[in-house]
């Protein structure tokens, strides 16, 4: 059965999207990402170092844009203006690639999205031809608003970035999903495999994570676990879980019991 993820006119076999930050080195980054099976990988955009080693390797040498969909993010931006500048630079850097992960942060402590600035940036970026995957709060009204503005994917947080606390409000994610017409991808807060499975069982189109893999004791092994968790969660969602009941229901028939 074809169960591809359709995103911005492209299809993907993997529903796991991964970040490339916080790894020990590029080799560990590449090995973990290969183990995860992810086809979409995020990168950050930063100033080049001036006066340092010019032979320093570039992450794009390890993760070729020919092999992966490179998703530049606007991490570290606190205003719409900064985020838009970053997206424009990223587009040139990646040879005209319009797909971006927009995140406009509120403060350094929570890294919660600044939603007024996120909405402002979304409006300008969509107008400028960007395909925006937007990191946002798990507010169903704002999620729908972002979809209506033309985002190709809406990405509510499960819990704060890098916290590993898992999905703190599954009911909100369900409410977002019930109204969504674009892929809803849980972004941020996943800590371990079961968190990813829960997101997929709720009906999310995918899960985006970084720290859960990069900061596991064994990142490559955790990447493999996350791959399976996303696949099994998706399969369970498609299979349709049994109804929850308040009381027991025997699995073995009563008929034919010995007396």
């Amino acid at each position: 059965m074809d169960d591809s993820l359709n995103l911005a006119g492209r299809t993907y076999k993997s529903r796991l999207l991964v970040g490339t930050g916080k790894y020990k080195d590029f080799e560990e980054t590449r090995s973990s990402i290969e183990a995860s099976g992810a086809e979409i990988v995020t990168v950050a955009i930063r100033r080049t170092n001036i006066g340092q080693d010019s032979s320093e390797p570039n992450i794009l040498d390890f993760l070729s844009p020919d092999k992966f969909t490179i998703l530049p993010n606007t991490a570290g931006c606190y205003t719409a203006e900064e985020a838009i500048r970053t997206c424009k630079l990223a587009r040139e850097l990646l040879g005209g690639n319009n797909l971006v992960k927009l995140e406009v942060l509120g403060d350094k402590e929570t890294l919660y999205p600044n939603m007024p600035e996120t909405l402002k940036a979304t409006k300008d970026l969509v107008k400028d031809g960007f395909e925006v995957m937007v990191y946002c709060s798990d507010d169903p009204i704002l999620a729908k608003e972002l979809e209506g503005m033309g985002c190709v994917s809406v990405m509510p947080l499960a819990s704060p970035i890098g916290s590993g606390l898992g999905i703190q409000n599954p009911h909100n994610i369900e409410m977002i999903l019930s109204k969504a017409e674009v892929p809803i991808i849980v972004d941020a807060g996943v800590g371990t495999a079961s968190d990813a499975s829960i997101a997929m069982e709720l009906g999310c189109a995918g899960v985006l994570m970084n720290t859960a893999i990069a900061k596991a004791q064994k990142p490559i092994q955790m990447a493999q676990a996350m791959k399976k968790a996303v696949e099994s969660g998706r399969q369970a969602y498609l299979a349709g879980r049994m109804e929850k009941k308040s009381y027991a229901s025997a699995s073995s028939p009563m008929k034919g019991l010995i007396k």
Binding site: T20, G21, R46, T48, I59, L60, A188, M209
Partner: peptide
Amino acid sequence: LEIVRAIGGG
């Protein structure tokens, strides 16, 4: 001028 590159990020 701002000169940027891609680096690891989430």
